[in-house]
Design a protein around this nucleic acid. Structure first.
Length: 426
RNA sequence: GUGCCUGUAGCUCAAUGGCAGAGCGCCACACUGUGGAUGUGGAUGUUGUGGGUUCGAAACCCAUCAGGCACCCCA
């Protein structure tokens, strides 16, 4: 370990070229999927005023997990912990000029001051996909279809990942039916959320603790076990029909225990989970949030959207061997060696000729021994090495070596590009 | 904030109280106009840090720092 090295900030990740290649691949993939549904890319500032999140995100997210600092003017600034409030602001600012339904997507960095562990860092990237202006189960289904298509695109099957769907309106109606006091409903929601993590006895005891009666407890238990509960919701029925029409119903399943922590969800909610259950962390979460625009000061506007973090999805892709092995971690396929101090500039000129012909070309910017330069070419994954020594220079030629076959030949300078391209094509 | 685990060479890890090592990688040479393969040789450590126990500590004890994992919450 090097001494006196300033360590990276806890919970951040360094992206060496290998990791950057993965991130760029992920970005390109989800961009293609989002664009195939007609979503447009956008971006918000990474810094926002704290008040933007104050009322609408989860309490804990704002008060304990956000990076907050005062700028030099004394304003409370937040490193954004999520994107949806920024989206609401951008929409509200131009609401009269935009054409709805509006489909926007974004991929950028977010920060949450939490304890880093598997699948969770303090600085992470998030894919956000939102559809605004339409309140229909079909809009929800289309939004979910974007991420199901993403799963399909990267090679994840319904045996590996599932999108679990619920509807808060449906559960609220059940709460009404069972006479669950409005004051304890948030606690009941998190109690439902926690079912899988506790023993049945502890879970029931906890249910009593938050104020549920014996009969409410029994009713809620049978509600959570009712796989057909969705049939009581006209919205849910239409949602699954639409998903089926989109050809993605294999990826989607009703689950009455999906509640979501964020306060602004109003209708359909969903999360994606790994089926095997080894990665015990949701891959993404989303849902309908019809009140948020009005809450930030805009005109009321229905909306649905989801967010997927890069950390967990990368874990999943790794687990199932779906990260592409052919990611471009090599700098360039062609290296122009430098024979000696006198011919360095001639080599540079040759490199420029090749680059102008569209090739990616490395030079070796010091007259080291050729053996060392070839070794370097090998290490960095170059396919072709070019040598411009005294013999070649005097004859207007270039030595071209195929580093895979070891075959080398001397060609006329004007043919160099064609010969190199020929080798690269094999 | 709480609990558990781990810190030894560039990397992965041995050494369980008795000379701090291996594999890989790195460097040099064989090969002064040619890489991968092979061979020969070589370099590398305040054993995270500070204290304590001991004739003797990488190992045992205390403290501290860092990282990982889990709870909480969430992408």
């Amino acid at each position: 370990m090097a001494k006196n090295l300033i360590p990276p900030v806890k919970g951040t990740r360094d992206f060496y070229p290998e990791q950057m290649a993965v991130r760029t691949w992920l970005y390109n993939t989800l961009r293609q999927v989002a664009e195939s549904f007609g979503y447009q890319e956008w971006e918000a500032p990474l810094l926002e005023i704290l008040d933007l999140y104050a009322a609408k995100s989860g309490e804990e997210l704002v008060k304990e997990q956000s990076y907050v600092f005062k700028d030099r003017a004394g304003n409370e600034i937040t490193l954004r912990p999520e994107l949806t409030p920024s989206l609401a602001r951008l929409i509200a600012q131009k609401q009269q000029q935009l054409t709805f339904p509006l489909r926007w997507w974004s991929f950028g960095p977010f920060w949450r001051y939490e304890s880093p562990q598997k699948g969770r860092t303090r600085e992470f990237f998030q894919w956000n996909v939102d559809l605004l202006g339409i309140d229909s189960p079909e809009a929800d289904a289309e939004n979910v279809a974007v991420l199901a298509t993403f799963f399909q695109r990267v090679g994840l099957t319904p045996n590996e990942v599932l999108i679990l769907v619920n509807d808060r309106r449906l559960i609220e109606a059940q709460f009404d039916k069972f006479g669950v006091d409005r004051a304890i409903r948030p606690a009941v929601s998190s109690w439902i959320d926690r079912r899988g993590k506790m023993t049945p006895a502890d879970w029931e005891a906890y249910g009593c603790e938050i104020g549920l009666s014996e009969s409410q407890l029994a009713s809620l238990k049978s509600m959570l076990d009712d796989k057909d509960l969705w049939k009581q919701s006209p919205e849910q029925v239409r949602f699954y029909k639409a998903i089926e029409a989109l050809g993605l119903n294999q990826y989607v399943r009703f689950d009455p225990s999906i509640m979501r922590g964020l306060l602004y969800y109003t209708g359909t909610v969903f999360e994606a989970w790994e089926v095997g259950g080894e990665i015990r962390r949701s891959i993404l979460g989303g849902g309908r949030y019809d009140n948020l625009l009005a809450d930030v000061g805009g005109d009321p506007l229905p909306a649905v959207g989801f967010a997927m973090g890069d950390v967990v999805i990368t874990l999943i892709l790794e687990k199932y061997g779906l990260l592409r092995a052919d990611l471009p971690v090599y700098p360039a396929p062609v290296l122009v060696t430098v024979f000696d101090g006198d011919s360095t500039l001639a080599s540079f000129q040759l490199a420029t000729e090749l680059r102008r012909a569209g090739l990616k070309v490395l030079t070796y910017p010091a007259p080291d021994k050729l053996g060392k330069q070839f070794k370097y070419a090998d290490r960095v994954g170059a396919r072709v090495a070019l040598i411009l020594g005294p013999d070649e220079l005097s004859g207007g030629q270039v030595a071209v070596k195929d580093l895979r076959t070891g075959e080398q030949r001397v060609v006329e300078r004007g043919e160099t590009v064609a010969v190199v391209n020929q080798i690269l094509a094999t």
